[in-house]
C-alpha cells in the first residue's frame, strides 16, 4: 500500500456514472499515482478465493450426514476443496464395510460437479476396480442446485441398492443380475479380504 499520495485529486472530481463514459482521465490519475507508488511496498501476496470455494464453504457448513458417514479434511482446515468421506452402510450387501471416497472440487463449482473416486477397492457393479463411480448426479445429471450432501446420499444409496443396469464392473453386475446369492457371497469375501475371480480385495470391515 502506498501512503505517499495526496488523495484530493481523486476526491475532488465529480462522481460520474460509469457506463459509456471515458475513463481516460481516471487512467491518467492512476498512472501518475502508480509512478509515485512504485517504490512503496507492494503488499503481501494474496491468494484469490474462487467462487467455487465460497459456495463449497456453504455446502460444508450445511452438511447433514447420517451417522454412518464421516467427512475429513486431509490437508487441514483451510483446504475444503479436497476432502474424504467414509461411508459405513448400515443395511444391505455391504453392511459392516467401510468405504472411503475422495472428493476434488473445481474452482468453478457448482458449475461443474466434484470429481469423486472410491479409494477402497470394492466389488461393486457400479464402481470399477480403479475407483471410478457410475452415479448419474456426478456426470450427466449434475445440476448447480445439487450439493455435497446430495452426492454423499447418492453414494450411500449405491451401497444399499447396487444397480446391475449401470455396470462399471461388468462381472459383478452380471452376478448380481443372475445370482444374487453368489453376489452376496462374493461381496462378503471381498470385504473380508480375499479374491473374487482374479482380483484381490483388501479387507475393509
Amino acid at each position: 500500500m502506498d501512503h505517499n499520495l495526496n488523495p484530493t485529486e481523486l476526491v475532488l472530481r465529480p462522481q460520474r456514472a460509469l457506463d459509456g463514459e471515458d475513463m481516460i482521465r481516471l487512467f491518467k490519475v492512476k498512472e501518475k499515482q502508480r509512478e509515485l507508488a512504485e517504490n512503496a511496498n507492494g503488499g503481501a501476496p494474496v491468494k484469490k478465493q474462487s467462487a467455487g470455494e465460497l459456495r463449497l464453504h456453504k455446502d460444508i457448513c450445511e452438511l447433514n450426514l447420517p451417522k454412518s458417514c464421516t467427512i475429513t479434511f486431509p490437508n487441514g482446515k483451510d483446504d475444503l476443496m479436497n476432502f474424504e468421506v467414509s461411508i459405513r452402510p448400515d443395511d444391505g450387501y455391504y453392511l459392516g464395510g467401510t468405504f472411503l471416497f475422495s472428493f476434488q472440487v473445481s474452482p468453478i463449482y457448482p458449475h461443474e460437479a466434484p470429481k469423486v473416486k472410491c479409494k477402497t477397492k470394492v466389488y461393486h457393479p457400479n464402481i470399477d476396480l480403479e475407483g471410478n463411480v457410475c452415479l448419474n448426479i456426478l456426470r450427466e445429471d449434475w445440476k448447480p442446485v445439487l450439493n455435497i450432501n446430495t452426492i454423499i446420499y447418492g453414494l450411500y444409496h449405491l451401497f444399499t441398492e447396487p444397480n446391475y443396469e449401470d455396470p462399471l464392473n461388468h462381472d459383478a453386475a452380471a452376478v448380481l443380475r443372475d445370482n444374487p446369492k453368489i453376489f452376496e457371497t462374493n461381496v462378503r469375501r471381498a470385504m473380508a479380504g480375499g479374491y473374487v475371480g482374479q482380483n484381490f480385495f483388501p479387507r475393509c470391515m
Partner: peptide
C-alpha cells in the same frame, strides 16, 4: 456463469 452451457458428461457406465 449460467450463460455457459454445462459441459456434456457421458455416464461412465455408457463409456464402459
Amino acid at each position: 456463469i449460467w450463460l455457459f452451457p454445462p459441459q456434456v458428461k457421458f455416464p461412465l457406465c455408457t463409456l464402459a
